[in-house]
Design a binder for these strands. Structure first.
Lengths: 338, 338
DNA sequence: TAATTATATGGAAACGATTTGTATGTTATT
DNA sequence: AATAACATACAAATCGTTTCCATATAATTA
């Protein structure tokens, strides 16, 4: 375990530490023969430069940290994969930080860029992961950071997003087209921006269609399977039941469908169910789930790419990039029951 | 962005850097009045010690890296959560490394402990994430490391595992009890130890039951939803179809059930399906999935706890900890069709 | 009161790399 | 043969901490 350092390698190769460093970083400045000699010693001993020393000196860690509320949710699968690929293309490593929805963990991962362990932040939550001072302009305080999916309220930040409101409206239009007029919305937590935006789309769609809003039909879950279950029981308990349910996450939609099935309600014949996200299980549940597809790979790639550009050039102004959603119509939605 | 260092704080407080360091790390050695004075300056400026400097000096990073083949698979959800919780309890941070199954990424994350960015490794893959020399005893070369779920062949390593062979046998026994004799196995990739162990359990169970092995009934997938689909089509194409299918992952089982349903095969009336893992979707698919439950939270906690103990005391001998699986019987298995 | 011991702080050397002059050795030019 | 030009390699400073050692002050004891 006694790992040897650049000085040891230098001694073994009969050169100075500076030369070893150049062999590693700027080999074109080194003569062919010393290059191979030193490189051989390096290989032979499996020398790996201590990243702490390097980072300390260069003030670059080569890491980016992705702050993700619940990393194992299937909706993150495509995002993470593409982030890693894009980052690797530019020589960056991705450190994944799972916050479990805890503010403390957000702050913890957020501090990694200030304490030198990372060069930039990919933020998938809706809170800035550090304290900001009100007496100094925000831009002066921000490290390189890109915000995706769940938007922070702050304006001057790089953002990658889809138009949640428009997506919700389009989903509603699909249900209107099938003849539904009594449509329940199962929203996410109230402090989650994407949920608010989708509620807004839900309401606008009703207005446009000339349908009066029934507040009883808007319920709040937390995007999880189990909250879908709870909300389904509530909706089934209504005296005047909806003919369609628009859940703002696939997980909730799946939970809802299970309860409906257990209670003898046939989807979509009795009630249609619509999800949001298009996780990979959406087409494998029964009936397969109609949902709003998010371009997850694109989101991940765009995030990483943008962040790295900001790291290399911190003074660029904030960019907002909007990506396209798609309606994926499957079996869980059908004509409204009479 | 010009972040100030310990010297700046020292200057502002009119003390030496050593004193500031003590305020942060050993406040009991500092007089009450300087303590509050220095602490105020620290708070006022939001000073955060540079972790690189600290780690370089102390030779401890306070990080552990978890190397995970596919982090977003639902089976990892409970594991990751409990790892984080346990690590935090001891003041360690978890860096999640998703390898996407690539050797290169394994090596990359594996090098983090040698280059100072992490103090130990939680390994969920079946390859050691670094090169080992054959002329030196393994124990001399190993950093603190704990291997879980998918076992590396090397013997002298800390391991957390369930008895996959016994679990597979018990699953088979459940199917035997229902009257099945023609049971297909849908295995994982051939280089994945857990799959081999389950195959071994599958075969032993057949022997014990006095049923002749039919090699045509053992097929190989890759643990994913889509490979479940492919394998299901293959099994349906057999002239003599199985009455039960034992998939070595829930994802494959879910893929299989979808194909069966599409082709008018009723589960479990026509064919029973059994999974492995007990991911959270298992009880939400239709029919809900009978499967082998792995104690994911326990695994995560045991891993992190063991690793941290090894970090603090590297000379402890390797430990092997076996945890208990449980059969979860749901709707996807039933009496064998005539 | 003087001598001794605790207590609190400062100075400076590490930790492991990179990088900026600077020095050395070679080759080319006059 | 002397100088210029160039290619290499070195020594030392540096990044931001912690910690050993020394010192100054305060507290205790004789």
């Amino acid at each position: 375990m006694s790992t040897l350092g650049i000085k040891d390698i230098a001694k073994l190769a009969g050169v100075s530490p500076a030369t070893v460093s150049r062999v590693l970083n700027t080999p074109e400045l080194i003569s062919a023969k010393t290059l191979v000699r030193v490189q051989n010693i390096i290989d032979e001993h499996g020398y790996i430069p201590n990243r702490l020393g390097t980072s300390l000196r260069t003030k670059k860690s080569g890491n980016i940290v992705a702050i993700i509320p619940h990393i194992t949710k299937p909706v993150n699968a495509g995002i993470i994969k593409s982030i890693e690929q894009e980052a690797q293309k530019f020589g960056y490593s991705v450190l994944l930080g799972d916050t479990q929805g805890l503010r403390e963990r957000e702050l913890h991962y957020g501090s990694m860029v200030r304490n030198g362990q990372a060069d930039g932040i990919l933020l998938f939550g809706s809170h800035l992961p550090f304290a900001i001072k009100t007496d100094i302009p925000l831009e002066k305080q921000l490290p390189p950071i890109v915000n995706a999916n769940e938007m922070v309220p702050e304006v001057n930040i790089n953002k990658i997003f889809i138009d949640n409101e428009a997506a919700a409206m389009e989903a509603m239009q699909h249900l209107f087209d099938l003849g539904h007029t009594r449509i329940a919305a199962v929203a996410g937590p109230s402090d989650i921006p994407s949920s608010d935006e989708r509620i807004s789309g839900y309401k606008k769609a009703l207005v446009r269609q000339g349908i009066e809003l029934d507040e009883n039909l808007i319920v709040q879950g937390d995007y999880t399977l189990h909250s879908g279950v709870d909300m389904a029981y509530y909706l089934l308990s209504l005296e005047s039941k909806p003919t369609a349910i628009f859940a703002f996450s696939d997980d909730m939609a799946i939970g809802i469908m299970q309860v409906l099935h257990k209670n003898g309600v046939v989807v979509p014949d009795d009630i249609s169910v619509m999800g949001f996200d298009d996780i990979n299980y959406a087409e494998f549940v029964r009936p397969s789930l109609t949902t709003v597809h998010q371009p997850l790979e694109e989101i991940g790639q765009a995030c990483a790419n943008l962040l790295i550009r900001k790291i290399k050039n911190p003074d660029l102004p904030a960019e907002k990039i909007q990506l396209d959603y798609t309606l994926r119509i499957r079996e869980s939605t059908g004509p409204a029951a009479k």
